[in-house]
Simulated assay, not measured.
Amino acid sequence: MPPLDLSASSVEITRAICDIPSVSDDETPLADAIEAAVSGHAHLEVIRDGDTIVARTNLGRARRVVIAGHIDTVPINDNLPTRDIVIDGEDFLWGRGTVDMKAGVAVQLKLAVELSEPSVDITWMWYDHEEVDSDLNGLGRLARHRPDLFAGDFAILGEPSNGEVEGGCNGTLRALIRTAGVRAHSARSWIGENAIHKAAPVLARLAEYRAREIEVEGLVYREGMNAVRITGGVAGNVIPDECEIEVNYRFAPSRDAAAAERVVRDVFTGFDIDIVDVAVGARPGLDAALAQEFVAAVGATPKPKYGWTDVARFSALGIPAVNYGPGDPHLAHHDEERVPVAQIDAVERGLRSWLTRS
């Protein structure tokens, strides 16, 4: 594998790292390439934890910023190698990972080696296993192994945000709603009780549920509650005695885990409910001085982040954090994943301008 050339443009670096497949559980080749590319620069201390690479300056600046991005992708589906495409006269780089989120990582890598005298100290983090179960997340693992590396006054996650600033993020909760019945032969259905039929009120309550919009520190977050999976049934001639509906609740960052659970239990009063996963969101954090300076420097109008991202990990540590990266989040994980070349350049200019301001 040829070494990464971080003197190339951010667009070409995006192409290079996308063409090194790094589906979750297979990040090592890309992590090796990143480690080699950022090592040997006098202004950077490089640390590795598994397939997470950290590079940080230690210039004695009064403030420190943490800038992070994940290097893994969802599975490839005939969308590598990358290629250049034009849509309605606009240039795009097409392929798995271009949006989520190697374009953001490419910008970070280029700036990490080029900015030897930034106006703040910077801790760059490129981590593994973001696209899978949270207990495997490289950022979470790093926090357990080296919590000292998370010291900072502000954090930026390069998640796709169309090159705009998205503050905080919604929380997410998954619950299993269960109904029970009595098995019987379907030819004598009146002898049994159909658990799938008993699930009808659960679906009715979901259909009637109206997503709420909740303002948090000036940003309006839209909540949502939806069935994402349903299972039940024994055989083609058996009345089912069990049915299970998985519900995903996306909740505003003003709610903690207990408050989110209460909402779900209130909606499904009278049913057997099992909360199987919950991750709280992150408040916008835009009242922090560094956050305000950053927003002003990049000329952005902050928006809310509806999905959950790892900014929540920083928020939980008391570090205000925002999402800022190239790419349309609607195209994350899409087979037609593609990023506008102009957005990659714009994000690089925005970060470079802010990090080198006097």
Rank of each mutant, 00 (worst) to 15 (best):
3 P>W: 13
4 L>W: 01
5 D>M: 09
5 D>P: 10
9 S>W: 00
10 S>W: 08
12 E>H: 14
16 A>F: 05
30 L>I: 05
36 A>V: 12
37 A>E: 01
37 A>D: 00
44 L>I: 03
44 L>P: 00
45 E>T: 14
46 V>E: 08
53 I>Q: 03
59 L>P: 08
69 G>T: 04
69 G>D: 11
72 D>A: 08
73 T>Y: 02
76 I>L: 12
79 N>C: 01
80 L>I: 12
83 R>H: 12
84 D>G: 09
85 I>V: 11
86 V>I: 15
88 D>F: 08
94 W>T: 05
103 A>Q: 05
103 A>V: 10
110 K>I: 06
114 E>F: 10
114 E>A: 13
119 S>R: 12
123 T>L: 03
132 V>A: 06
135 D>F: 14
143 A>K: 04
144 R>P: 03
148 D>H: 13
153 D>H: 05
155 A>Q: 07
168 G>S: 05
170 N>L: 08
174 R>S: 14
174 R>H: 15
175 A>C: 08
179 T>L: 11
182 V>N: 14
192 G>C: 06
193 E>I: 13
194 N>W: 02
195 A>G: 02
200 A>G: 13
207 A>Q: 15
209 Y>L: 13
210 R>S: 14
214 I>Q: 09
215 E>P: 07
215 E>L: 09
222 R>N: 07
229 R>M: 15
232 G>C: 12
232 G>F: 11
234 V>A: 08
241 D>R: 07
242 E>H: 15
243 C>L: 07
243 C>Y: 05
246 E>T: 14
250 R>E: 03
259 A>M: 14
262 R>T: 12
262 R>I: 11
265 R>G: 02
267 V>G: 00
267 V>P: 01
274 D>L: 11
279 A>H: 14
279 A>L: 11
284 P>M: 05
290 L>D: 09
291 A>K: 00
293 E>R: 12
295 V>W: 05
295 V>E: 01
298 V>N: 00
299 G>A: 08
300 A>H: 09
304 P>N: 02
305 K>C: 10
305 K>T: 05
309 T>E: 02
310 D>K: 10
313 R>A: 12
314 F>A: 08
314 F>N: 00
323 N>M: 06
323 N>D: 04
327 G>H: 02
328 D>S: 04
331 L>H: 13
332 A>I: 08
332 A>M: 09
334 H>M: 14
334 H>P: 10
334 H>A: 14
336 E>D: 13
337 E>S: 11
355 L>N: 00
